[in-house]
């Protein structure tokens, strides 16, 4: 087993399903025998605020939080949040960005402008940035809410863990009636990445 700790940062907007995605990720990593720590913030920030979930795994993990410049993978459920959390990406890290915009209140009120050409900037700053159409894929599958599973599929692939058995974990974490669509979304997410 790789002894180095791997750091995955999931960021987005409260209500986007980052918590369920990180739950499946951590439960799966535990089942593969890793030491795992996960940290997230509940409460007020969840009301449409900027949210982040830190997942760290390896042989032995101490800190539950990831520091700036240390995330091996950052997955942004919302485009502008990718910009906010970019300083957390490590030098050789991989950024995955959902091509999806949610306007914050200052933008809705016209007090600020939603940043333009985010993808261009991110790709220049973090070579290898993957912009994925998770929202569109989830829509095509028939339920916009499974966007989080599409992104989870992409993360698992990026981590090189797509060959592992995630089925049992996924089934235990979502309601019985929603298993099938979540499985399809998870599988679709894995195909959004090259290779």
């Amino acid at each position: 087993m790789n002894t180095k700790t791997t750091n995955v940062l999931l960021v987005g907007v409260g209500g986007q399903g980052t918590i369920l995605a990180s739950k499946i990720l951590t439960e799966g990593l535990l089942s593969f025998g890793y030491d795992v720590k996960m940290s997230e913030i509940h409460g007020m920030a969840q009301r449409g605020g900027s949210v982040s979930t830190h997942v760290r795994y390896g042989e032995k993990v101490y800190s539950p939080v990831i520091c700036r410049g240390e995330a091996d993978v950052v997955v942004a459920f919302e485009k502008m949040e990718a910009l906010r959390w970019l300083p957390y990406l490590s030098a050789g890290g991989r950024l995955i960005v959902n091509n999806h915009e949610i306007f914050p209140m200052p933008v809705i009120l016209g007090q600020a402008e939603y940043p333009r050409e985010i993808e261009k900037y991110l790709s220049a700053s973090a070579p290898g940035t993957l912009v994925v159409e998770a929202a569109k894929t989830a829509d095509e599958l028939g339920n916009p809410r499974v966007m989080n599973m599409v992104l989870l599929g992409a993360v698992v692939k990026t981590l090189g863990l797509d060959g592992r058995d995630w089925g049992g974990t996924l089934r235990s974490c979502v309601p019985p009636g929603a298993v099938e669509i979540n499985e399809r979304a998870f599988a679709a997410g894995k195909t959004l990445l090259p290779g």
Partner: peptide, 14 residues
């Protein structure tokens, strides 16, 4: 880390 050129607008809870 990698600073964004322009920090994005705040996203306060609402």
């Amino acid at each position: 880390g990698r600073e964004g050129e322009v920090p994005p607008p705040n996203r306060p809870p609402l």
